[in-house]
Nucleic acid binder design. Structure first.
Lengths: 143, 143
DNA sequence: CTGGATCCGTTGCGATACTG
DNA sequence: CAGTATCGCAACGGATCCAG
């Protein structure tokens, strides 16, 4: 058997592909905004600068851990600016950078698409679910 | 214990927010394309109809499970059309619906953004990492 | 060729406790 | 007020086996 099996070949391909993905900007960014809170933080900052506790209230369902973690990632990527005011109670303001604002606009565009096509997607789902409840019933009498 | 603690209030808010998110089209769609392979399948089908094994080769690193699962979700949402040809070896072709094509275009737009701003993000990351106090790396061979 | 079922590791995310 | 550190759960994703 001089040739590798399909499974073995796939594994090799996966390894190479994995390395390829590591250098893919689109994938990296997609992985990043894929998080549950990234887009929410982005839109929450759309109004303007917000304090940490402000964001916590705006997004409401977020835990401190996730809010901080999300903000850290966004800050590291230059999407969000973190401004510390060394008051007695420490005050920290977060705001979108121009880069972050452009991404927010993109997310908004996505939101626009989702809302515009929600009906169609919903209808498709209902249709799909109706056609595959058990894979047994034949609508209209097929055959 | 007269008033609820901040933690308790947050939990109540989270419950309400969770219900709110369940009805949010943007979140649902975002959760959906957030998957590792959704966008890849979308772009892989951009060329035109593809067979299952074709997609498997095009995307290369994907497992059968994830490819099938991704295609199922996309089909259910009316983004992908599944066409079965009952040959002796069963043949299945997948293609984008107009709805799926519009989403593909949106993903392509995102890809465009990612590539256009990759340098800026990368620079921001390098800057952030350079300013990080305690990283494992010690510049200048200090230590 | 297509893809369903199952086992298993990894990771995201939430809850909690603690610090400055 | 604004975080940091740790534990635990559940979902995501991959490998493998099995079936039509």
């Amino acid at each position: 058997m001089p040739t590798r099996t399909a499974e073995q070949r796939r594994q090799a391909e996966r390894a190479a592909y994995d390395a390829y993905l590591a250098a893919c900007p689109t994938r990296k960014l997609l992985d990043e905004i894929a998080g549950k809170w990234v887009s929410l933080v982005l839109v929450a900052l759309g109004d303007g600068p917000r304090r940490y506790s402000d964001l916590s209230r705006r997004i409401a369902g977020v835990s401190q851990k996730m809010l901080t973690q999300t903000l850290r990632v966004l800050e590291r990527d230059g999407l969000v600016r973190r401004e510390v005011t060394p008051s007695v109670p420490v005050r920290v303001d977060y705001s979108l950078t121009p880069l972050g604002e452009s991404l927010r606009a993109l997310v908004a565009g996505f939101k626009d698409w989702a809302e515009a096509n929600f009906d169609a997607v919903d209808a498709a789902r209902a249709d799909y679910d109706a056609r595959t409840p058990d894979l047994t019933i034949e609508p209209g009498g097929a055959g």
